[in-house]
Design a protein around this nucleic acid. Structure first.
Lengths: 189, 189
DNA sequence: GTCTATACCCCGATAGAC
DNA sequence: GTCTATCGGGGTATAGAC
């Protein structure tokens, strides 16, 4: 692996674990196993590397969503597959955790890829729900965009609950609750 | 207001805005309008002050929940009142944001009041839901604790979505989606 | 391209006067 | 109880050799 790639991967992990303000150049170098000079040769500085690392983390999330949201299956089954995919619960969300970082929140270069990822995710879920409603698989009592927002929010909040209590099962409970509510939208044949 | 109280209030605001690792003693003093010596006279240090400030923030949240979850009203109306109460969306949750702080997550003294607050909130919501089911106001298709977890998670995630896009309406959309799903549990008379 | 050495500043805490 | 002065350490970036 290239030195540049080692830096991006190390930074991506640290952003996930500690956020932007909680990650120092020294920690990046130690995690990546490269020397001081390499960081400032390949990137303008911490922020520049962070943008690349955030994009790498976003791509991982998007790929996992693509793999689970596709057919086969009715809308409910596709949503269920997405919600129940394997996750490292207590580590939280690689992208969502950054919304709480005070520097990311006010820095457009850092926040932009975060915003893009949430918009993308919401659009994909909304498509699945709208298609399900059109095919008569789901009741159309709930606006697809609102339901997609509630699903993404429950995921993000599930991580919060689990981390608050150091207990993965709090995430599972929230997802069970949501799935039970969504299941009430499945149209009986 | 006492100097001690100024310190607690200033720290509570900064923990909300910037988290624990993002808050420096210098910022605390500036926000509180007190001198360097006062901090270390009234508290052992940053951590000790933070514990007091987290408890102060938790009490604000609990009071708002008490005021909205009480009767009058059927279970759905009480949940709706709780979910739609006035909030400073883009500032995020005073308590939930701390779950993403790398220091709070690993420090029991800091995390304990966060965990306690989430357990308390979930228990109050679960009571409202279980009572509603017993009174026949709600279907009993969803476990009360799971539904309470989904509600708290959607709130927490709603803040995440809004902050990711610098747009309060993303919070509102998630809550609308959740309320529409919860409304499907209201038993028709 | 990568290394070591170093600059400069702010972080969190302490000292000691008043 | 509050103040100013100061400490040791680590955060972020740069210099310059190889």
């Amino acid at each position: 692996m290239s030195t540049r790639q080692k830096l991006v991967d190390g930074m991506a992990d640290l952003l996930w674990e500690r956020g932007y303000v909680g990650t120092s150049p020294a920690a990046i170098l130690e995690r990546s196993g490269v020397g001081q000079g390499s960081l400032y040769h390949h990137f303008d500085g911490k922020q520049d590397l962070a943008v690349a690392a955030i994009q790498a983390n976003a791509e991982i999330l998007k790929q996992a969503a693509r793999e689970t949201l596709v057919p086969p299956g009715h809308a409910y089954e596709r949503l269920e597959r997405f919600l129940l995919r394997d996750r490292e619960i207590l580590r939280g969300c690689r992208i969502g955790r950054l919304t709480q970082d005070p520097e990311v929140y006010v820095n457009e270069a850092l926040r932009r890829p975060v915003e893009d990822t949430f918009q993308w995710m919401r659009a994909r879920l909304s498509e699945v729900i709208a298609t399900g409603q059109q095919l008569g698989e789901l009741e159309d009592a709930v606006d697809p965009d609102d339901m997609a927002s509630a699903i993404v929010a429950t995921l993000q909040g599930g991580y919060v609950l689990a981390r608050a209590e150091h207990d993965e099962s709090r995430f599972a409970a929230a997802i069970r609750g949501l799935l039970a509510l969504v299941h009430s939208q499945v149209r009986q044949p």
